[in-house]
Amino acid sequence: MVPRIAGWTSMAPGRFAVVHALSATSWATVLTTAGHLLSAGARERLTFALGVPVVLVVGIGVGGAILLRRFRRGDRTRSTPEERTWREPMSRRWPARNAPTWRSSSTPSPPAEWDAPTLCTGWRVRDVVAHTISYDGLRPLALARRLAAGPTGANEAGVAELRDRTPCELVALVRERLTPRGLTAGFGGRIALTDGLIHHQDIRRPLGRPRAVPAGRLVTALEFARFAPPIGARSRIRGLTLLATDIGWRTGTGPAVAGPGEALLMVMAGRADAVTGLSGPGVDVLAARLGS
């Protein structure tokens, strides 16, 4: 849900997996028919504009069933009984926002920190905070209009709407939206959880404020990130084995990349900053793919 970072395409909910879970044949037909009339950028905008209404009516149910079946199969093949005890119930009221400090603290962080840079190129702390709630509750037509600008334009539009808010006002808005609504509530809150967790670290890492992410949330986000097209993890981790040394999670085949689960999630999302916390024979391949 952020601008392009080291080859990472933004994570806007409008580009979420349900769009891509629809019939590939249907999308190919639409794009092939219009392809000779549209530029690449126009094709992308058309895909978003046409896809959102369909996603909201049909895609969430169909795509959700497909992906959730994959997640369950992944749990059976990749998790020990001990790891499965870390899974937390998924519901609309699950803490999908990941309870970051700007949501749980009684007062905002120091003013200077709200204007500090983050791992999201061009975005300050206040911009990332605004972004994490900028899609909540958008009605289908409003969402379609925003996404018609493309993923990066849609993200920027959402941030621009809240750019004049003070830190106190942003904190108040975040508290009102702790329970995700609309598209971000999809897949049992996994969209908001994964996005919020990654963006939380986008803020914490540059500020030098590490934290221990609860294992249940981290495992769920790692599993989800493998399949969510907006994150783009597949192309980055293809042919590699990821090993989370702190939570016993693993995925993939090939040369190993080992380290904390949080660092693995961040590199899956295209954050080259997290490569330094990893080791193994596959690290050089991963670093090259991230441009670091």
Results as ranks from 00 to 15, higher is better:
Ile5Ser: 09
His20Cys: 01
Ala21Ser: 15
Ser23Met: 06
Ser23Thr: 06
Thr25Pro: 01
Ala34Trp: 07
Gly35Ala: 05
Ala40Asp: 11
Gly41Gln: 13
Ala49Thr: 15
Leu50Tyr: 07
Gly64Ile: 12
Gly64Asp: 09
Ala65Ile: 03
Ile66Lys: 04
Ile66Asn: 04
Arg69Asp: 08
Asp75Cys: 12
Thr77Gly: 00
Arg84Pro: 10
Glu88Ser: 09
Glu113Asn: 01
Leu119Arg: 12
Cys120Ala: 13
Val125Leu: 10
Val125Ala: 02
His131Ile: 02
Ser134Gln: 04
Leu138Asn: 03
Leu141Met: 11
Ala142Val: 06
Leu143Ser: 11
Arg146Ile: 07
Val159Met: 00
Thr166Ala: 02
Leu170Arg: 13
Val174Arg: 14
Arg175Trp: 06
Arg181Met: 13
Gly182Pro: 00
Leu183Gln: 13
Thr184Ile: 06
Arg190Trp: 12
Asp195Gly: 01
Asp202Lys: 02
Ile203Trp: 11
Pro214Phe: 06
Pro214Glu: 10
Ala215Glu: 14
Arg217Glu: 11
Val219Gly: 10
Ala221Trp: 12
Ala221Gln: 06
Ala228Leu: 14
Ile231Val: 13
Gly232Ile: 08
Arg236Asp: 08
Gly239Lys: 03
Leu242Thr: 11
Ala244Lys: 13
Thr245Met: 04
Gly261Leu: 03
Met266His: 14
Val267Ala: 02
Gly270Ser: 06
Gly270Leu: 03
Ala274Trp: 01
Ser279Gly: 00
Gly280Leu: 06
Val283Asn: 08
Val285Phe: 00
Ala287Met: 04
Ser292Asp: 14
